[in-house]
Computed example of a mutant assay.
Amino acid sequence: MNTVTLSVCTREDVNRRFLAAARGEPQGAHISFESIEQMWRILTPRRWALLRAMTGQGAMSIREAARRVGRDVKMVHGDVHALLDAGLLDREQDGRIVFPYDAVHVDFMLRVA
């Protein structure tokens, strides 16, 4: 199964993972955010629904993605571009979009402020 881990990480955590990968240690797919606030700003409930509808489904048009979530194409278009900008979605050469994972794992810890 092709799983991506979404996490809140410090720059040091990302550097540690990079160095481990450079030593040949498998790291798996990761998409990191610098704060929980940034993660929630990008991953709104509607964008989560879009990712859920696209998980494991292969490339599709924005119109198809909108149909799957039962939303207006224009509104989904804006969410798709936000997810593309954040590196969560990819665009194929033919213009279709893809969330290239079969599963999502979310990993972050809340600590006393």
Rank of each mutant, 00 (worst) to 15 (best):
M1A: 13
M1Q: 09
N2G: 02
T3K: 14
V4K: 00
V4S: 00
V4A: 02
T5Q: 08
S7F: 02
C9K: 14
C9Y: 10
T10Q: 08
R11V: 13
E12F: 11
D13S: 09
N15G: 10
R16S: 10
R16E: 09
R17G: 03
R17L: 11
F18M: 14
L19P: 00
A20K: 14
A20Y: 07
A21E: 13
A22L: 15
A22D: 10
A22G: 07
A22I: 10
E25V: 14
E25N: 13
P26Q: 14
P26L: 13
Q27P: 01
Q27G: 15
Q27L: 08
G28E: 07
G28H: 09
H30N: 14
H30G: 08
H30C: 13
F33Q: 05
F33M: 08
E34L: 15
E37R: 15
E37I: 11
Q38C: 10
I42D: 01
I42A: 04
L43Y: 00
L43S: 03
T44R: 10
T44A: 06
P45R: 09
R46W: 03
W48Y: 12
W48A: 10
A49E: 12
L50I: 06
L50N: 00
L51T: 04
L51V: 09
R52Q: 15
R52L: 15
A53H: 04
A53R: 07
A53W: 02
A53Q: 07
M54T: 04
M54Y: 03
M54A: 14
M54L: 15
M54Q: 06
T55V: 11
G56D: 11
G56Q: 10
G56P: 05
G58A: 12
I62R: 06
R63F: 04
E64T: 09
E64F: 02
E64A: 13
A65N: 02
R67V: 05
R67S: 09
R68P: 01
R68N: 11
V69G: 02
V69D: 01
V69E: 01
V69Q: 04
G70Q: 05
G70L: 05
G70T: 06
R71T: 06
R71L: 13
R71C: 06
D72V: 11
D72L: 12
V73A: 15
V73R: 15
V73H: 11
V73W: 07
K74W: 06
K74T: 11
K74P: 00
M75W: 09
M75Q: 15
D79E: 12
D79Q: 07
D79I: 02
V80A: 03
V80E: 00
H81V: 11
A82L: 11
L83Q: 00
L83E: 02
L84S: 05
D85Q: 12
D85P: 01
A86H: 04
A86G: 03
A86N: 05
A86L: 06
G87D: 03
G87E: 01
L88H: 00
L88S: 01
L89V: 04
L89F: 04
D90R: 15
E92G: 03
E92Y: 03
E92M: 14
E92V: 05
Q93S: 13
D94F: 01
V98Q: 11
V98M: 10
F99P: 01
F99G: 02
F99M: 09
P100A: 12
P100S: 10
D102P: 01
V104D: 05
V104Y: 04
H105E: 14
H105Q: 15
H105K: 15
F108L: 07
M109F: 08
M109Y: 08
R111L: 09
A113P: 09
A113E: 10
